[in-house]
């Protein structure tokens, strides 16, 4: 099942919810808020969420986007679920390293590997 909105593509497969950013830039605060709300709604609806967020299309993101990812991660943990990130370009991965968020998130090279790790 796939549902496409303006900023987020959501796919549920074998109990894993995959969020894929549609836009190249995750910078606009209103969009980031909307993305966060969509993710949190899905997570709240799951008993024990298993979530992959894939960054395949993303070329720029701001600290506000990082903040939303942390909020989403906390919501997943609170429900005893698991969250992985994948397909992060080297320039964006550097942002995670600088902020040490690579220690907070489990990051896989590809979405397939991320999904497999949650199986």
């Amino acid at each position: 099942m796939s549902k496409e909105q303006s900023q987020l593509r959501v796919t549920d497969l074998d109990g894993v919810t995959r969020f894929e950013f549609v836009d190249r830039d995750i910078l606009d605060e209103a969009s980031i808020r909307s993305i966060g709300e969509e993710m949190l709604t899905r997570i709240e609806a799951a008993a024990k969420p298993r979530v992959v967020i894939t960054f395949q299309n993303v070329e720029h993101l701001s600290s506000a986007a990082l903040g939303t990812l942390i909020t989403v991660s906390s919501a997943v943990k609170k429900k005893g679920g698991q969250l992985c990130l994948s397909d992060i370009k080297p320039s964006i991965l550097e942002v995670f390293r600088i902020t040490k968020l690579n220690r907070v998130f489990t990051i896989h090279p590809t979405a397939a590997e991320a999904v497999k790790s949650l199986a």
Binding site: S62, S63, L66, G67, I70, V95, I98, T99, R103, V104
Partner: peptide
């Protein structure tokens, strides 16, 4: 502070 959602702008 790693899991606090805000406060990374100046650092970046």
């Amino acid at each position: 502070n790693l899991e606090i959602p805000s406060g990374r702008g100046i650092m970046l």
